[in-house]
């Protein structure tokens, strides 16, 4: 059982992670590099002159971007282990898992791991004001775990009790509230912050949908081989 989960997760996670890394390098990284010009003080927002939207950005950096590809593949492999493990449990309980419905699994994973925490702690640019990192990590893990349980209850629970608990689990972290900084101190124009959050969430959705599809494909194939 575990060999099948591990093999499927490695293939699906690594393949989806490489695609996610390319999408991030094309769509997210330029916004981050642009923001770093403000973080480093090369550009100053409201510094007396208006800064052009088009800026000369550093190009591909083999070391820095190579590490990003490596770590994206690693993180998506981690996601894949959790996703395929859950798929294995579901198919053992009689739910068919395929590449096609794997996309829905992937979107549910995206909601739990990416979207739910982003509702109160949006993807942040370097240099933005933020609360203590440990406090934010504790809130992040709590939110992810409760949203993941909510996704399972919505997917496999039946009846209003299960759905009601799911709604509470989804809403509670945001009612409690994420740790916030005491003052706003970010040097980066808000337009860049908004673009970064939008791009990070969009790329995350695409990558998770692909991950779910691959995970469903590799898992159903491994299961058919017995």
């Amino acid at each position: 059982m575990f060999a099948k989960i591990g093999t499927s997760a490695l293939f699906a996670g690594f393949a989806a992670g490489l695609i996610a890394a390319v999408l991030q390098l094309i769509f997210v990284q330029p916004v981050l590099l642009h923001a770093e010009l403000y973080e480093a003080g090369e550009l100053v927002h409201f510094g007396g002159t208006l800064n052009a939207v088009e800026q000369e950005l550093p190009g591909f950096d083999a070391m820095r971007d190579g590490l990003s590809v490596l770590f994206t593949a690693l993180i998506y492999t981690g996601y894949a282990f959790m996703l395929v493990g859950a798929m294995a449990l579901a198919s053992d309980r009689g739910h068919a898992v395929t590449a096609r419905n794997g996309i829905i699994w992937g979107i549910a994973g995206y909601i739990a791991f990416h979207f739910a925490p982003a509702v109160s702690l949006p993807p942040e640019l370097p240099g933005v004001a933020a609360a203590d990192v440990v406090d934010r990590q504790i809130w992040w893990f709590g939110t992810v775990i409760s949203a993941a349980i909510a996704m399972a209850l919505i997917g496999f629970g039946s009846g209003w009790a299960a759905w009601g608990v799911a709604a509470v689990l989804l809403l509670a972290p945001h009612v409690i509230g994420a740790p916030q900084p005491e003052y706003f101190a970010g040097p980066v124009p808000p337009e860049l912050g908004g673009e970064f959050a939008g791009r990070a969430l969009g790329v995350g959705l695409a990558s998770w949908a692909i991950l779910g599809c691959f995970a469903g494909f590799f898992w159903s194939r491994a299961e058919a081989e017995g």
Partner: peptide, 11 residues
């Protein structure tokens, strides 16, 4: 860069 792009708390 990945931590920022993936929405994890980074600093």
């Amino acid at each position: 860069d990945v931590r920022h792009a993936t929405g994890f708390p980074c600093h």
